[in-house]
Design a protein around this nucleic acid. Sequence first.
DNA 1: CACAAGATAGAAACCGGTTGCAGAAAAAGC
DNA 2: GCTTTTTCTGCAACCGGTTTCTATCTTGTG
Lengths: 342, 342
Amino acid sequence: MTRKPVTIHDVARRAGVSAGTVSRAMAGRPGVHEATRHRVLEAVEALRYTPNLAAQRLSTGKHLSIAVIVPFFTSAPVSARLNGAVSVLANSPYDLIIHSIQTPEQRDSCFQLIPHRRQADGVLIISLSPRDDHEVASLRRAAVPVVLIDSDHPSVTSLPRVVMDDVAGGRKATEYLLTLGHRRIGFVGDRTDNPFHFIWSRDRQLGYRQALEAAGLPPYSGLCGEGEPSRAGARSAARAILSTPDRPTAVVAANDTRAIGVLEAARELGLRVPEDLSVIGYDDIEIAELIGLTTIRQPLGASGQRGMQLLLDRLVGGAVEPVREVLPVELVARGTTAPPAR
Amino acid sequence: MTRKPVTIHDVARRAGVSAGTVSRAMAGRPGVHEATRHRVLEAVEALRYTPNLAAQRLSTGKHLSIAVIVPFFTSAPVSARLNGAVSVLANSPYDLIIHSIQTPEQRDSCFQLIPHRRQADGVLIISLSPRDDHEVASLRRAAVPVVLIDSDHPSVTSLPRVVMDDVAGGRKATEYLLTLGHRRIGFVGDRTDNPFHFIWSRDRQLGYRQALEAAGLPPYSGLCGEGEPSRAGARSAARAILSTPDRPTAVVAANDTRAIGVLEAARELGLRVPEDLSVIGYDDIEIAELIGLTTIRQPLGASGQRGMQLLLDRLVGGAVEPVREVLPVELVARGTTAPPAR
DNA sequence: CACAAGATAGAAACCGGTTGCAGAAAAAGC
DNA sequence: GCTTTTTCTGCAACCGGTTTCTATCTTGTG
């Protein structure tokens, strides 16, 4: 079953040449007589020879692989970004090594380890932000290029990254509700100190606050407790702010999944949407269209593509200057928003 | 920025020992004086030494990685299986190399290449079935263990695989509709000759046929044409069979996404669900619960876990006897099914 | 026909680790 | 105190490729 692997020397012996010649012949490098090349390729065929990748990597110093660090890729937005990144790699010789983060401990160890292990030629980090200056410094002195997608930190100055304009998105969502006439607008999202250190909720909430502030109105936020899965967490957080006497007439949710939690809370409390309550989500994942959720659409797949492209550019071109690309977001108005009942 | 990497010899020099000793000290192998080990580890720390993985792999012959071949992992069921598989790997030293299949050509080349490249210690194939005896034979003589999940072929006798009881699921769905009193029951799914050679639609349809046959009733199938994305394809296929004079009063969809397409077609045709039309899906993905879709639940995450576990067992234990594990499915009754209007 | 230039192919060093083997040093036994 | 045993460590071979350098064989030219 597992007979010993065929090596380049076996091929060389069979073709009556040296190992070096086999290597040259297979790589299509010049300086090999056509007849010889033919003999070599025949021997390769006959023995079903496949080069040992580890040996190739060792001697060339190229790994031909990209490591990706990504949290919970079953979540639709993350999955969409990852898919974008993967699609760029499809026509390249690079393999993709996935490091799926499922616990805060994994997050920390991956951040420390992966960029310094010389296993991949580059590292792509999706939706996970450096926690502090120490982590930023660690990434900066990584052995290989590192690119961040949907991830940022104030002191990151020299790492290329593709970020989403979350602040603008939160503002846009809130301003839309203001335009519709709402005055008591709530927000349901995550706490800043969530264990994975996700930053999007914080930024979207910041945009929300900015919009309210500009209109001279107070915020009504309900934040998910730690450890609660997002939908359930959002549901209970929403229940809290929707049960107050001067309850909001509209809610901005930090993402679509949480918006669905808000919708569930509304149903439980007997509030009709959008008559009694307007709800707006964020991401525009597939479900959003199905259930007619008004939301902020961000270019998920495009962010993955762009980030991977940036990484590949860096691999071939050497040190491209650090870039911080901000991708735009847009409002998609559907059925869960309307002017307040008055 | 990319100063030359630290090698084991640098560490050896600094610690005043030989490379062999460094290797032994780091691996925690016995036969190294405690004081020496300490010196070595200090040097490792000071130089921030990380072993070159390619070199390690070459000399030990172990790759410490698993290759996974998977189609469209943005699709929820595939993503769930993959996630199950990944979670098993989290506590192992193995890395995960993803080969995402996006086109039929990629499918073919991956099937040929991956199992024979000595890049991973094992290969996991998810939801992609061998097309013919030739491909089966190719997988059988792979250089490393291969395990299939949600994938099968009649002539696969010696490959371990975890399959879902799709025939039973199709039958179960249909029998439930029969129990409710439906007599004209349609099926919306894929053609057998779909380019990726997915087999689940075929098997579920087979179960559907068996159930109808047992009840002495005729089938009404509408199959998606090639190339159409699943929801839209299902919608047009459903429109076709729902526009006939003796239209079905219930439809079994090959999966939840297609069930949603059927629901859209029903809405377009002015049919109320479940009063005028019952719809039943397959998979029980997250959306199904949200929209109250009756469906057949299959253990998606568990299939991934089980398959990966089978592969790991094979890696440590050598040749375990070939297994074909069949995982059960169950009906989840929700709001899209009811007795026919009569 | 002699000689220079160019085309091929082999030998060997190298990539950076691991590991079997042997010798040196330390500990134990007499 | 000397031999024997055990412990520790260095040396060198090896993993399977790539690549440089050089020798040899052709071929072309004067």
